[in-house]
Nucleic acid binder design. Structure first.
Lengths: 235, 235
DNA sequence: ATTTGCATTATGTATGACATAATACGATGC
DNA sequence: GCATCGTATTATGTCATACATAATGCAAAT
């Protein structure tokens, strides 16, 4: 008797735990009743009674939802729905040495993708003040030929400011968690070092381009600025 | 007496819960002992004894770590460290109607940023087979003038294939969770509809560009292809 | 040697008790 | 009246204990 023949006669057993089921129930409730941030959900004992499980199970479910950032619990007041902080969620999980190598590489690439892709938003949303600040940041930039290895703080200040200019809070959150990973990969020797030592578009030059308010040119400039990193990845 | 004067004399009280502390302890343990995926951690009762708290607290901490994707627990075998699935984590939390409007807008923008930014990876990593598949997908594309509203399935197939070509699993995961949000925003009327009905670079044209293996041109093409969406956001 | 059954073990669930802190509300003082 | 303080209440946070359940390994049986 072949195993495949039985697949549709013997359905997979549901081996999900009580907590799994309660979690689904609650998420369904959120969807069905269109619960929005600020709405509160029944207290633990009530939920336990309604669903016919112990408070233990309910509490574990709520712990999950809390960890997912979907609810917040206050003593006395019960639990209320919350709009999750998308980037904040990942923050704690992104422990460089625990992530497997392929994920690290993925994240490394992700940063490059984002910085090249966000050109439109940087160019359109940079205020005169922003450009002023950027100029201030790059004003001490040495001759590119002289800078052997890069100053990480300087990098963060410049690129961080660009993220800030986009006004996209979620994006800024991503940067916060991408950067440590990025550094880890950069310094871990996971990627081969660049063979050529040409100098590409500098931060100073990027600021000059930004002043022209031309998104295409800025995008090209940023792509060129990151050439060193791209060439490490793309064979 | 001014409140500010007391700030450094009266330090903030630590009002973190036991679970918070145990969580920090465990995360520290992960870092200090350089625990890697596959390594297992002590069993619940042992942890409870070591840290001098009840098993309840330990279990709640482990539930958090499980939810964060950092560990996996199997009956009998205890808990083992795991490399978290970065995108999968967000998946469950991304419930469109619960996210606040600004986050939704952020995510909408994020998709545009990524698709423009990933040009290099698409161009460098597309195999002949991939291009073949793309050609197959777009072969029935009607005249752009004729298509009044877009076919969502078709969109997903085409753009999804592009994500796939990048070979970046994390990115692919992001697409999975970005898309529903993107759709929700698109159909919710949150953004003003495009005023002009010009036709921009089509999928078919993008495939043709891809064949030339020119990243800059592909990036420009993609940017143009998405012009409709960009113009909704950038005033 | 392969399978079957059983004991073991660590997580999963239930229950009852108490600690703790936020809230509401009434009491007190001016 | 109004502000402040105290206190009872209430829902979450923590503890202890007992038992259920399922995966593992080993022994027994064929």
């Amino acid at each position: 008797m072949k195993i495949e023949d039985l697949q549709d006669i013997l359905p997979a057993i549901d081996n999900s735990s009580l907590v799994d089921k309660v979690e689904l129930n609650l998420l369904n409730l959120f969807a069905k009743k269109e619960l929005k941030p600020g709405d509160s959900i029944p207290k633990e004992v009530e939920l336990a009674e309604i669903m016919g499980v112990s408070r233990t199970v309910i509490r574990e479910t709520l712990t999950r939802l809390k960890t997912m950032g979907l609810i917040e619990t206050k003593k006395k007041k019960g639990a209320v729905i919350k709009s999750p902080d998308v980037a904040g969620l990942l923050q704690k999980s992104m422990i460089p040495h625990i992530l497997d190598e392929s994920t690290l590489k993925d994240v490394f690439e992700l940063r490059l993708i984002i910085e090249v892709g966000m050109a439109d938003f940087v160019v359109h949303r940079a205020t005169e003040n922003d450009i002023e600040e950027l100029s201030e940041i790059v004003k001490n930039e040495e001759n590119p030929d002289a800078r052997v290895l890069f100053d990480i703080d300087y990098e963060i200040r410049f690129h961080g400011k660009l993220y800030e200019i986009t006004g996209n809070e979620t994006l800024k959150g991503f940067q916060k968690l991408l950067l440590p990973i990025y550094n880890y990969v950069y310094t871990s020797g996971m990627l081969k070092m660049p063979t050529t030592r040409k100098h590409f578009t500098s931060h100073k030059q990027l600021v000059e381009i930004l002043k022209k308010r031309d998104a295409d040119e800025f995008r090209a400039g940023m792509r060129n600025h990151l050439e060193n990193h791209f060439s490490r990845i793309l064979k």
